[in-house]
Write a protein that binds this DNA or RNA. Structure first.
Length: 292
DNA sequence: TTAGGGTTACAG
DNA sequence: CTGTAACCCTAA
């Protein structure tokens, strides 16, 4: 009687997303069993998690459930059928489009005003697709694309966005790219990946005193390094990678901010700063690319 | 236990 | 009045 509707808070939503990223779609019970998440989600049930996740994705992609319902309703109400069922689906308005390809000067991109709601939904879908594929060795871009296309409407630039996002997620440590397959990072909460650069260190050989690798980030020593080395030959590619990395860092910071927005508002400011910095870096690199 | 369908409560 | 989000119920 005291709670007609218990609306979800940002913390709960963030926890849910983190749980999905960590464990995968479904496994609500597993997510709920997680001590960290259960602390926040202990008031929620697995069904609630599922429903919330459904709602999030439904609202994100313009149409999972609502579209079907709406379509049905419209079909009954009006016989007018749309010739263009779905042209532009995804691409949320506030998406930060890390497009590095277009050489157009981004003059049409105004300053970041203060997007409170972010965290690209595409990331969720992407991770969801990878987890749903359940490929042990990971999935390649084609499989992921197909999975997403089957589940949602397929925008024309999906492939490009997917490639960009994939790269981005690999850069920030959420995904691990081995050869040509992508898989979820084994052990790392995104926020944690930023704080502590996960060190494999299987055997002894712990050169902790070696602070040589300090700045360059949390990137694990995967084959990505090799590709990056290869990229060094190409200035443009390197610049693009750097820009993508900066944006990735910004997104991570934003995610962290949303997760702990309640505890520290400064984090959000930091995220904003990081985002602005990323944007600036991207812009600079881009102009440098075409200027040189 | 989870996925999906359906219903109710709240906001615009 | 319509759309959205939480809630509830049921089948797999």
């Amino acid at each position: 009687m005291g709670a007609p509707k218990q609306k979800w808070t940002a913390e709960e939503e963030a926890a849910l997303k983190a749980g999905v990223v960590k464990h995968g779609t479904g496994k609500w019970r597993n997510i709920l069993s997680d001590p960290e998440f259960s602390s926040i989600l202990r008031s929620r049930s697995n069904v609630d998690l599922k429903d919330k996740w459904r709602n999030i994705n439904a609202t994100a992609i313009w149409g999972s459930r609502q579209k079907a319902k709406l379509a049905l309703k419209r079909n009954q109400l009006a016989t007018k059928h749309y010739d263009n069922p779905m042209a532009l689906t995804t691409v949320p308005p506030r998406e930060e489009v890390v497009d590095v390809k277009p050489l157009a000067v981004s003059s049409g991109t105004p300053r970041v005003t203060g997007p409170k709601k972010l965290i690209s939904r595409l990331d969720n879908i992407l991770l969801e697709a990878i987890t749903s594929l359940k490929e042990p060795g990971g999935s390649d871009r084609a499989s992921i694309a197909v999975c997403i296309e089957e589940k949602y409407a397929t925008p024309p630039n999906l492939k490009k966005l997917l490639a960009t996002k994939l790269k981005l997620l690999v850069a920030n440590g959420t995904l691990i790219k081995v050869n040509h397959k992508y898989r979820i990072a084994p052990r790392s909460t995104i926020s944690e990946a930023r704080r502590s650069p996960l060190l494999p260190l299987e055997g002894r050989q712990k050169d902790s005193s070696k602070a040589e690798k300090k700045s360059i980030n949390f990137l694990t020593k995967t084959q990505v390094d090799a590709e990056l080395s290869k990229m060094r030959s190409m200035t443009a590619e390197e610049a693009a990678a750097a820009a993508a990395q900066a944006v990735a860092e910004a997104e991570v910071a934003i995610a962290e901010a949303e997760k702990a927005a309640r505890e520290a508002e400064a984090a959000e400011a930091e995220a904003e700063a990081a985002k602005i910095f990323a944007k600036a870096a991207e812009k600079a690199l881009k102009s440098r690319m075409q200027d040189t």
